[in-house]
Design a protein around this nucleic acid. Structure first.
Length: 270
DNA sequence: CCTCTATCCTGCGAGC
DNA sequence: TGCTCGCAGGATAGAG
């Protein structure tokens, strides 16, 4: 499922086809994903030139010369396809550039979203206004986490998934970062030691950066017909490894927190 | 404000 | 082979 590294990789791949190009056609094959498409989405993008692409949390941003930005979220199953050989029932939005390149937003589960936001309002846009700091930016520090976790009884795992505390972490990377930092996922937020927070910050950055690097190494494939952006092989240390041995000799366990699976090593994580 | 739960959606794999 | 069923889970609304 797409989390921050997958979105980052997707944005970089899209940029190779879209950056600087004029969008000549916009096809909407349904009226909504998670939310309705903006009523003026097709009109707002048709004829616009893409001036750049960027990412905020798990959102991808396609900036245009009309001072408006298309903001997409891939949800659970979203992906962009480049020059698809056919358009299937889950290709909900299709863009075509003046060069004749075709980009399709495919999302079987339709947990994703697409919005068109005035650039001047981007920071105040409801989905962005309350986001915490970027985990790869200067705002994520042990001090920030200490302040956000102070007096919180919720499990550290759940707090890290809260986009208001850190923007862009999802289930997989939280499991992996807590493992690397040696922190038990059920530990109360307010009871994570300052020393542990000092280990957690670099652990978060490392798991994200390693995955972005892994995604970037596959970027060349995206330019080929029917290239699919954002998914690449990864080697998790605990995620999805219930019952398998940890490197320490312990056994990876699976528990459910907030209705979601958490994987961890009880021997490594205290 | 905090915490917890339900909801949205479809593909996939396990089990029978 | 074909069926059912549980699971995957980000964001959000709403209850307590």
């Amino acid at each position: 499922m797409p989390e921050l590294p997958e979105v980052e990789t997707t944005v970089r791949g899209l940029a190779t086809v879209l950056d600087g190009q004029v969008i000549t056609r916009v096809a909407l094959n349904r009226a909504d994903l998670r939310r309705p498409f903006p009523v003026d989405l097709a009109q707002g993008l048709t004829g616009a030139r893409v001036t750049g692409l960027s990412r905020r949390a798990k959102y991808g941003l396609i900036h245009t010369d009309r001072e408006r930005t298309m903001v997409f979220h891939l949800g659970m199953s979203g992906r962009w396809r480049i020059d698809p050989e056919d358009i299937g029932k889950h290709d909900h939005l299709v863009l075509e550039t003046a060069e004749g390149r075709v980009l399709s937003l495919n999302d079987a589960r339709r947990f994703g979203s697409v919005d068109l936001v005035d650039d001047a309002a981007l920071d105040k846009w409801p989905q962005f206004a309350a986001l915490g700091p970027e985990p790869l930016g200067p705002g994520l520090t042990a001090g920030h986490l200490a302040a956000a976790f102070k007096d919180r009884i919720a499990a550290v795992k759940l707090l890290l998934l809260d986009q208001r505390i850190v923007a862009g972490l999802g289930n997989i990377y939280v499991c992996e970062a807590l493992f690397r930092a040696g922190i038990h996922p059920e530990r109360e937020g307010g009871k994570v030691s300052r020393k542990a927070l000092g280990l957690l910050v670099p652990a978060i950055r490392e798991v994200l950066e390693e995955s972005i690097a892994a995604g970037g190494s596959t970027l060349r494939d995206y330019a080929r017909p029917d290239g699919e952006l954002g998914y690449f092989a990864k080697d998790w240390r605990v995620y999805g490894r219930e019952g398998e041995p940890c490197a320490c000799g312990g056994t990876v366990q699976r528990i459910v927190q907030g209705g979601r699976s958490t994987f961890f090593c009880p021997k490594c994580q205290k």
